[in-house]
């Protein structure tokens, strides 16, 4: 109880004082995770929609695989990417290890399956409703895809939020490929892990509270956005 109160007070003080180090960590967390989510959406939304719109051999295998990948443990992803981009690994020459780019790659691998699977589900329902009409307009697959993505936007925003939740809360992958280097690759979750290992439990918890506050703010913002889209487009 004592510790929890202390953490709350500390979190409040850190936020109010706009502590430079904390701000830097928060900014990097947002940059890395938002970029990973954006890349995942850019790839995953069309990919999920295509999976929803097409029928081909092996489609079910892909869907099962996609769903399974949603449960990938972050440390496994971190390790796999470490092995790939380590200087001794196949992509070592790019010197990506211990950079924010490596963290973005890792989080993209974690988020992409979630965005793809949720997009597929959303678009599958919508496509059942729209397909005949869109085909009757003579639209090719590209045109139908664009229509479905736009009209499915409220559901797709939810997919992006779910992806963001996974990215910003994840520690196992970014700590391996980022190295938790101060001022370079230290993000909220790795900082929390570090403070915990130092036994600075109140500080760790305070950072955790800030992370939750950010998460809450992001969700509230997207929820408002989604509600607005709903109001304008739905009965």
């Amino acid at each position: 109880m004592q510790e929890a109160l202390e953490a709350l007070g500390l979190a409040g003080r850190l936020i109010v004082s706009m502590d430079g180090d904390v701000l830097e960590i928060v900014a990097l967390s947002l940059q890395v995770s938002l970029t990973a989510v954006a890349v995942s959406c850019l790839i995953g939304l069309p990919l999920g929609a295509l999976l929803a719109m097409t029928r081909f051999r092996g489609r079910n295998v892909l869907i099962v695989l996609n769903n399974a990948l949603m449960g990938l443990p972050p440390v496994v992803v971190g390790l796999a990417i470490y092995l790939a981009i380590s200087r001794a690994g196949p992509f070592g020459v790019f010197g990506l290890l211990y950079t924010p780019t490596a963290m973005i790659i890792a989080q993209t691998v974690l988020v992409l399956p979630i965005v793809t699977a949720l997009a597929r589900q959303t678009i599958e329902d919508l496509n059942a409703e729209y397909d005949d009409y869109l085909r009757s307009l003579g639209l090719g697959i590209g045109g139908r895809l664009r229509t479905l993505l736009w009209d499915g936007r409220t559901g797709l925003i939810t997919a992006a939020i779910a992806g963001m939740g996974r990215a910003i809360a994840e520690v196992g992958a970014v700590i391996i490929v980022g190295g938790n280097i101060d001022h370079v690759t230290r993000v909220m979750t790795t900082a929390i892990a570090l403070e915990t290992s130092k036994g600075e439990l109140a500080l760790a918890m305070a950072l955790g509270i800030i992370l939750m506050a950010i998460s809450l703010a992001l969700n509230a913002a997207t929820h408002a956005l989604r509600g607005d889209a709903m109001r304008r487009m739905y009965a």
């Binding site: 990097l28 940059q31 890395v32 938002l34 970029t35 954006a38 890349v39 959406c41 850019l42 211990y98 950079t99 924010p100 780019t101 973005i104 993505l149 736009w150 190295g179 280097i181 001022h183 370079v184 690759t185």
Partner: peptide, 28 residues
């Protein structure tokens, strides 16, 4: 349209990242 906005946003994010600046550093 959405795609282009997203791409621009990503580019901005990546460019703003630390660690890509080529200052002199070693890894310990």
């Amino acid at each position: 349209m959405i795609q282009r906005t997203l791409l621009a946003a990503i580019l901005l994010c990546v460019l703003a990242l630390p660690g890509l600046t080529a200052d002199r550093f070693i890894i310990l």
